[in-house]
Write a protein that binds this DNA or RNA. Sequence first.
DNA 1: TTGAAAGCGCTAACAT
DNA 2: ATGTTAGCGCTTTCAA
Lengths: 341, 341
Amino acid sequence: MATIDDVARAAGVSTSTVSYVLSGKRPISAPTRQRVERSIRDLGYRPHAGARALASSRTQVLALMAPLRADVNVNVIMQFVTGVVTSARAFEHDVLLLTQDDATGLERVADGSMVDALIMMDVEADDPRVPVLVGLRQPAVLIGLPQEPAGLSCVDLDFEAAGRVAVRHLAELGHRDVALIGSPRAVLERHTSYADRMLRGFTLEAVALGLTSTVQSCESSHSGAVEAVDAVLARMPGVTGVVVHNEVALPAVVATLRERGRRVPEDVSVVAVCPHDVAVGQPTPLTAVDIPAHTIGRVAVEMAMARVEGEQPAETRLLAPVLTARGTTAPAPAGQGQLNP
Amino acid sequence: MATIDDVARAAGVSTSTVSYVLSGKRPISAPTRQRVERSIRDLGYRPHAGARALASSRTQVLALMAPLRADVNVNVIMQFVTGVVTSARAFEHDVLLLTQDDATGLERVADGSMVDALIMMDVEADDPRVPVLVGLRQPAVLIGLPQEPAGLSCVDLDFEAAGRVAVRHLAELGHRDVALIGSPRAVLERHTSYADRMLRGFTLEAVALGLTSTVQSCESSHSGAVEAVDAVLARMPGVTGVVVHNEVALPAVVATLRERGRRVPEDVSVVAVCPHDVAVGQPTPLTAVDIPAHTIGRVAVEMAMARVEGEQPAETRLLAPVLTARGTTAPAPAGQGQLNP
DNA sequence: TTGAAAGCGCTAACAT
DNA sequence: ATGTTAGCGCTTTCAA
């Protein structure tokens, strides 16, 4: 491989000139720049990443810790990941992928100076990795919102507001008995940030609007969805509004409601909380609060890069939820609304 | 951050001794080793990845190019990715994630000496990236099998054999009219390796066994599955055996067959080609040929590392398919087998 | 068994 | 506008 010295020699300039042509950190005369660029092309020169990192303390790499396990929704995860990778490239960065179960991964790549910043998904309310991130030299961005951000940047959909918006939409249609079919039990039990906040928004808004509400965990499978729907129908036979926050179970929830004799949306309205493409890709397009996974990933990178560049303080950005009415919500069945005042 | 010199000073030895303690490349007396290890722990020392890469031309990083787009199955992709990341760690390597649409990513990370080896998924028969990989200094491993491996290592499920096994299973149960519901049109049209080979195995074995067969592409959505099933039923009303190679469409294919009055497996037998967990996670557990994605990812890493270490030549490993009979295949309906001799 | 020192290829003062 | 050069933190000869 050609080195920067080879390029300098070929162009008849000093190595620093080549370096500055590359970095643009000082003005270079047009003719010089052209000769250098020519030599770079002729030699197929590419700076050695390690040498550059050593001299500049910049790696042009971002770490992304993603939950690659079965119980979280793979589809949504993937959208976050592509969002991160794609926008990292816009900042001339590549992405090092760490998995959740590689407990010491964050410290390894940070302390070994392998990355300029870290992004972590699937944050829990009281996440043990948060103090670890706080102790690192590199800035970190959380996708999700822990109880104690401790000076870390955070970004996510405002799931609490999403829960509120979904409930309000149902209330405005006259529904009085509403249920949340949410994340798997395991996700709830570890107090995963998004699940906690969703639950909170749903419940608080139902109380605020005087609705009767119930919450049901739901495993991410066909049978899980069937069980969840049956549990809700048993506990709240008069339910007319259902919020579903579980992409995998989504189709089965709708199908099961129908199998149990509840027409959607005539008898029961369904509001999903899921990415846009999932909502419109169903047999019946769903009224849904969008989870803008790609955007969240992009914003996470932007926040990370901002902190790498300047001395910005940490910030938290919660994206406002957007509900789009499609085919699965309708006014509550006549009379129903008055049965449970 | 502490450097190797700090450690050496603290331990009262030379820097090279610390280096050798770390690498194990020369014998160190027990007392010396202990003092060095103590200092390393006390100082929380971690070697600087860039410096190490510069001096040793080893990055301890692997590149993985994965197709993070919508039309390939996200679930399976994810299993490959976790397989790769997990076993990379076993070789003390981290994984740099490149996306399919980052066309020049492979050259960028290879020529910039960011990685020790590259692994590429979703290979097409005549993939333009193959010659690129051949030109790199670092070894590359393909997950999939191009027409012309050109000296690259390849690993994958033997999809041709998988197609044959599936057909043979149906034939042994007496089925005479069989259909393949496969990948989306786009995947087939770019001659994605696995889709091509599957189709070939299915067709050749059907011919060899004297069966009547048809092949149908299938978009990865509910409606795509419905359309595919309807197309097959229209073209081959007497079909009694269906091989499905499309994880996303799988549940909808079975559901649609039933909606069209075909009981599964009494009227129509279904053989899936999908990962184990997908097959057993369906409402009805499916007779299936397993796609051992995790294993393939692991083998890819092993092959890559072997070539990084030694001067092994490139090799191609096709994993033998394993079919497990579950609830969705049964003997062909009586008499049917004789209608189309 | 250990140490000294020459790079690895680049960046960024410091000069001019 | 450009050149000179001292590191960056490690590995690995070469010596002892």
